[in-house]
């Protein structure tokens, strides 16, 4: 998978320069999502619960007439969850699911800014990277003294779709 490619290309502890990201807070941590994927950021309106759906994809929302699934990255990343508040936002992303272009929402506890960060493979930052499931983290980003988790969205969604009802992610 892609992240492994730049492990060999990048020498240890060296951060790849500047990429545009949207930074957000989730599970008390800082995450960065490639800004090219982000279609828009919404305040959470009415979210419809999907009965019997796994916690990772437990809701639906209406984005300009399109029904979009709402996902919670805290489940695969094994992060603590807290209730929604005034800062809660939804990032609407353009992703490929099972080969088809899809629109997916992800929950954010707070959205910070669009910025540029440099990144390195997770193995190269052991003190920061060890806490999260390595297969779901593409890289660790850094800006000044702050570190960001760059989740591997392809791997997360592929793992979810590979198991009926996302049982793996729920148990994980």
């Amino acid at each position: 998978m892609m992240p492994r490619a730049f492990r060999s290309a990048q020498p240890s502890r060296e951060f790849r320069p500047a990429q545009d990201v949207v930074t957000l807070r989730l599970g008390g941590e800082l995450l960065a999502i490639e800004s090219g994927l982000v279609r828009e950021v919404l305040e959470p309106g009415a979210i419809t619960r999907v009965p019997n759906a796994p916690a990772f994809a437990a809701g639906l929302l209406n984005v300009r007439g399109t029904v979009v699934p709402l996902t919670d990255l805290r489940i695969p990343l094994r992060m603590p969850r807290c209730p929604r508040d005034a800062d809660t936002r939804i990032l609407v992303l353009d992703l490929k699911l099972a080969g088809a272009a899809s629109v997916v929402g992800i929950l954010a506890e707070k959205v910070h800014e669009v910025t540029q960060i440099s990144s390195a493979a997770i193995e190269d930052v052991p003190d920061v990277g060890a806490r999260w499931p390595a297969q779901f983290v593409r890289a660790i980003g850094r800006k000044d003294t702050q570190y960001f988790i760059i989740p591997d969205l392809d791997a997360i969604f592929a793992a979810f779709l590979a198991v009926p009802l996302g049982a793996a992610l729920q148990i994980a």
Binding site: N52, A53, L60, G65, V67, A100
Partner: peptide, 15 residues
């Protein structure tokens, strides 16, 4: 979406 395709109890959603 494919994320919910396994939930056979629903044939779709509507706005």
């Amino acid at each position: 979406s494919p994320l919910h395709a396994a939930l056979k109890s629903f044939s779709g959603a509507t706005v």
